[in-house]
Amino acid sequence: MRSARPWLAPLLSALFLALLVGVWYLATYQPAAEATVDSEYAALVGQAASTGAKSAMPTPGEVGAKLWEHLSDPFYDRGTNDKGIGIQLLYSIGRVLLGFGLAALVAIPLGFVIGMSPLIYKALDPFIQVLKPVSPLAWMPLALYTIKDSGISAIFVIFICSLWPMLVNTAFGVAGVRRDWLNVARTLEVSRLRTAFQVILPAAAPTIMTGMRISIGIAWLVIVAAEMLVGGTGIGYFVWNEWNNLSIANIISAILFIGLIGMALDTLLARLARAVTYRE
């Protein structure tokens, strides 16, 4: 369905953005207040505290300035604990892709087996149902304790949380392949392996891709929390480090970047999903 006026939706989006920033500006606007304390004291505290108030939320202008600061120098490296936001994002993306890739390597073959054999499906079902709803972060202490390496623990948490949607979706897709197609393959005496690759895989591909899309979304959600826990590098560490400094402007910048990267990852998998979709 093609709209007669294709520019309308983007215009409306821009309007919403302007409205949001406007409300934000008004909510955080503070008229310049007189200092209520002597100058010696005022020099020792923040600007808000010197007028007897609590430090406030940053204004859109302050966040904009921070964003510009990050964008103009995203890849600086000033020591172990202070790296540019670009480097931090790359670390996070690397971890997500590694954990997600490992999960795909395990989940898709296993999902195939589960989907093709009702017996194994029934036998493994209780495990999947119990482990699936566990919050990924609940695995963290266990991972740290047994793996004894925080970097690998973070990847393990990504792995375990991206595993289930892919596993369940693959099994569902494989089990749901139309009987007729399988029967046709059997009549033509196609080998089991060939059936798996040439009939079942293309038929289940859209469902598998949906599972992968859900998984990468979850993985990207979890990496921030995992990195806040283990620290060191990554966008989650960046958020934690700026929280430590109570720098809300930096945290809002990070939220924006996290959202943008998440959108990019999702779009990428949506494209892939579209590539394998077929019409019946």
């Binding site: 604990n81 740290l144 925080s150 826990l229 620290g231 060191g232 560490y237 934690w240 480090n241």
Partner: peptide, 15 residues
């Protein structure tokens, strides 16, 4: 290396 909390620093030291 800056670390997120006491439990984490203990676990990383133990590991």
């Amino acid at each position: 290396v800056k670390t997120a909390g006491w439990a984490v620093i203990r676990d990383k030291a133990l590991a």
